[in-house]
Amino acid sequence: MLRVEQLAVSYGIIPAVHDVSLTVNEKEIVSLIGANGAGKTTTLNAISGVLPIRSGRVFFDGQELTGAGSHRIVERGLIQIPEERHLFPDMSVAENLEMGAFSAEARHLARRTLAWVHELFPRLHERRSQLAGTLSGGEQQMLAIGRGLMARPKLLMLDEPSLGLAPLIVDDLFRIMVEINRSDVAILLVEQNAAQALETSHRAYVMENGRITLAGEAQALLEDEQVRAAYLGI
């Protein structure tokens, strides 16, 4: 469904990501783990069109999307939930969700999608007229995911959704991710919380210094000595 071939991205003249190839198949949860600064966010941002691609290609759902504008990427169903949430702080919860369904097709389905999002996150329904900037951290992350779902994703890319949240809320979040995935939404998950990410995923990639250094079944990586030492602290 998503196929990234030999992606390279740089900030000015400083390269950040080299030769990254990865795929996400339909209905899969794939995680991308790695230390801070490894290039995970950069990779997602290049796929979603926030950063220009230096070389390499991105295919999604049978079409090439390398360098396409964000509205085309979003319309095809490739949605990124950015690191640190990036909500619209002075808009209400309801308005944030509405902005998620900005593209034409998503807008037609908005009412139904909203019911689904409220079912997944009842809190968002309770707080619908509250300003997003005044929500708690966990609620903000729920809203960020809910807003992304409003765009009717086929593939959801989540960038460190558990960052800064209490363990109980993180558990909740992982449970909901699995639930979203059961509704046939593929997930590409970037996490520093490697153990939980690997336990939840089908496959995973490990990134170091802007390159993919390991890839495989999540279960196999969980048992890999190197991974255990470097990312699981075992």
Binding site: P82, L87, F88, P89, M99
Partner: peptide
């Protein structure tokens, strides 16, 4: 208003 409040998010929402 969305663009004014967070242009990256607005971009990501298409």
């Amino acid at each position: 208003r969305a663009c004014a409040q967070d242009r990256v998010a607005a971009y990501l929402m298409g």
